[in-house]
Amino acid sequence: MTQVLLCGAIIVTLSMGIRHGFGLWLQPITQEQGWTRQTFAFAIAVQNLSWGVFGIFAGMLADRFGAFRVIIVGALLYALGLVGMALSPTGLLFTLTAGLLIGAAQAGTTYAVIYGVIGRNIPAEKRSWAMGVAAAAGSFGQFLMVPVEGLLISSLGWKQALLVLGGAVLLIAPLAFGLREKSFGGGSAAPREQTIVQALKEALKYPSFQLLMAGYFVCGFQVVFIGVHMPSYLRDKGLSPQVASYALALIGLFNDFGTYIAGSLGQRLPKRKILAFIYLARSVVIAVFLLAPLSPASVYIFSSLMGLLWLSTVPVTNAAVAQIFGVAHLSMLSGFVFFSHQIGSFLGVWLGGLLYDRTGSYNIVWYITIALGVLAALVNLPVRESAIVRPRAAGLPQGA
């Protein structure tokens, strides 16, 4: 159990830590290349959508053949994508590398695949807590990597910084050996109660699964809009680039606490109520941030509070999916829920760039994030968390 948690946590730290800093590249790249913010934002939007689409298939492959092979391929794609991001001379190539390629890489090196391993190897009574630990690792990656990325950009330049990260991300490959599962040693998993198609049909028709997907859509919209566009928003308001770097780092630091607390509470409290609180609290924090006078202090307070709520939805949502449907197809089902998250991410980051270019302001998108948070709080309240009742095959336990 310790090996799975440790290796999974470090992999998520690297993968999520690097991608959380992409907003720092928005202004250096667009200014040197002569691109609009929408060009950069669209590439990152494609990245999030690609992550969601490929995440479904990465989850299926991880459930069928084990996470080890999927993570190795993901690490290689990540390195290629970062190098391509640095060397792309046109917006189209930038979208293909920073967008499509890195998105596919993240699908194989982040939560859906890692949570599948955790779900299969951690007892149910500790599952939500363990997922909280993995999510906290991703947050620590943000706290650790964003300042490092800012330092690399300032000292080496944005192109060389990306090349250095391309080499660093290959460290994921040896860590994947710590997630090899004996049940996949022969290329096939143990017998299951359902086929992939049966599990998918059951989930997509289940109202609570649909509600969890709707809430996760909002999560993606909010966090990716803020993560990518807040550095530029703050610079537009006259604050230094260091304020933006510290702000993103604080989000990562406090998210360590938020995700761990949310995962732990998920073992004792109704998960739907935890999720509703998180989404509503985000809306309140954003509204107060926009109303208060802007200063480095207000930014740091906002980042700390938002950090507590940042990825705290991740362990709770995935633990709810595992609790309802079992763990046999958890990576795939988590991939589908995450696909909804990434559709929201696509719209959040793309609309941020589009509406800024058209209006010269991020205000409209900020208001959308507030309204969506209230909506997400409402749709999570009716979720039924009890294990789904399905006919049992002879000799097989119900659920998982």
Rank of each mutant, 00 (worst) to 15 (best):
F57H: 11
P123M: 00
P207V: 05
I278Q: 02
L24G: 04
K159H: 14
G166F: 11
L330I: 14
A328V: 04
S334Q: 12
V70W: 02
G55H: 09
T13R: 01
G252N: 05
A136T: 02
G59D: 07
A189H: 12
A244W: 03
L163I: 15
V284E: 04
P391D: 08
L378V: 15
Q31D: 12
L101Y: 07
I18Y: 08
A199K: 01
I122T: 09
L250E: 03
T97Y: 04
V299M: 09
V321S: 01
W129A: 05
G227V: 06
V243P: 04
L170M: 09
V243D: 08
Y300D: 09
F336P: 05
V148D: 07
Q267N: 04
L234N: 06
V73P: 02
S264G: 07
L333C: 11
R235I: 11
P293S: 10
A203Q: 00
L294C: 11
P270V: 08
G108R: 00
L96Y: 12
G395F: 13
Q222D: 15
L372T: 12
G150V: 11
G167F: 13
R192K: 15
L211F: 11
K182T: 14
P293K: 08
L179R: 04
V365I: 14
R268G: 04
F254A: 09
L96S: 11
Q33G: 07
T313A: 05
S50R: 05
I343Y: 11
L294E: 09
A130W: 01
I71T: 07
L250K: 00
A377C: 15
G185H: 14
I71R: 01
L179V: 10
I388V: 15
A297M: 14
L162Q: 09
L179N: 06
Y78I: 13
G99H: 01
F68E: 08
F209K: 04
P296F: 00
L77K: 05
I388F: 10
L280Y: 12
A249W: 02
K159A: 02
M145R: 07
H341I: 11
D236W: 08
I226K: 10
L333F: 08
V197Q: 10
A176H: 07
G220V: 13
Q267C: 00
A376Q: 08
R358C: 08
I118P: 00
K126A: 02
A247W: 05
L163E: 11
S331T: 07
S295H: 06
L275E: 09
